[in-house]
Design a protein around this nucleic acid. Sequence first.
DNA 1: ACCTTTGTTGACAAAATTGTCAAACAGAAT
DNA 2: ATTCTGTTTGACAATTTTGTCAACAAAGGT
Lengths: 205, 205
Amino acid sequence: MAVRDVGTEQIIKDTARKVFFIEGKLHATTQDIADAAGINRTSLHYYFRSKNDLVKQVHDEAKGELTRKIKAILGSELPFREKVEKFISVFFDYVTNAPYLQSFLINEMNCKPQSEPQLFARATSTPPEIRLFLNEISQEMEKGTIMKTSPENFMINLFSLISYPIIMKPLYIDFFEQSPERYEKLMIERKEMIVNMIFNVNSVN
Amino acid sequence: MAVRDVGTEQIIKDTARKVFFIEGKLHATTQDIADAAGINRTSLHYYFRSKNDLVKQVHDEAKGELTRKIKAILGSELPFREKVEKFISVFFDYVTNAPYLQSFLINEMNCKPQSEPQLFARATSTPPEIRLFLNEISQEMEKGTIMKTSPENFMINLFSLISYPIIMKPLYIDFFEQSPERYEKLMIERKEMIVNMIFNVNSVN
DNA sequence: ACCTTTGTTGACAAAATTGTCAAACAGAAT
DNA sequence: ATTCTGTTTGACAATTTTGTCAACAAAGGT
């Protein structure tokens, strides 16, 4: 047995997540992961029959965790504005710590030929927490607190403004020809800026 | 020679772009590309010594094209608001037609160990068209036409609001449990919505 | 008609990646 | 100490992906 059995299985999963979601190495090989985890590649097969199994598990868990996280905040009892602020703050940090999670999920979805043609998957509909939040959004739009659009688009804006700049960091550092430090500064500015933008604070000085 | 020589080399590149940027198959093999192009895989090696060569070319050309496109609009002589509107419209269409281009670029940048440690690459700085546009943004912020932030963050917002929802389409269709058709509708709404949002139109009915 | 050039192809070789197996190992229980 | 169990490992096999080569085909010039 290992000197200190923290659970090799868990180490492998954690490492895989790190490699995929943090380092963004979507093509990582089993050897890459084994090396990064400091274990023998065969061990990886001992715990996960195949690479696919590992990827699938990591994928599913991450996706579940992500949606749970979102639902938890958006389904909470906080007043609207606080809720949005909290969401921005928490989700911003989450994405910062796993910038490539979303890219990974997208990529997975495109490679697999769509497990089921979702014959009756269409039966399920928008989860309750989200439906609730969408309603809140509508109400706030009526009140004039926020700009009018589809509630879904309000949410999509939120996600976009938070995630995209983090995901595309390398591209924009390159494009703007800026130092990573400067970009960091810009990112820090964002949390507050997004709130202002969303709540339509007029720039009348 | 081929019956009708439209340039096999070009066909291969076009197909590779299609597979990578449109279908989002970032792991596509040379065989996949050859099949999609309707050519023998060996031909691919005839025109591009290796897979890496092909990928590199496609990558570089796409990246160049993308930045040229952006610079062309943002560096044009249009008045600010029109310029922004045009940018939204054109860039939106561009991203729609090649949703995975940006993911692809990001992925490439992460796999390669950063060609040069850019010892004196730091010498170059923000391209002139962009610098110009950033100035315009500052001026508009002074005027109060748009919200105050770092000009860079204004640009990043623009990119985010346009690109992200298109890139993440499969994920959000899944998350919202919505039909692709409905999502399409949401996307169409966006062009105008983004303009409103950017120019801070108050939602006072 | 013949040669040359360019492009295409199938067969093969090489490399990379994944998967398997049986031997070795370490601690726990007997 | 010995056996037992779950784990680790190196060696090997299978598969997948990439790269090469030499034969073949199709045009164009001579």
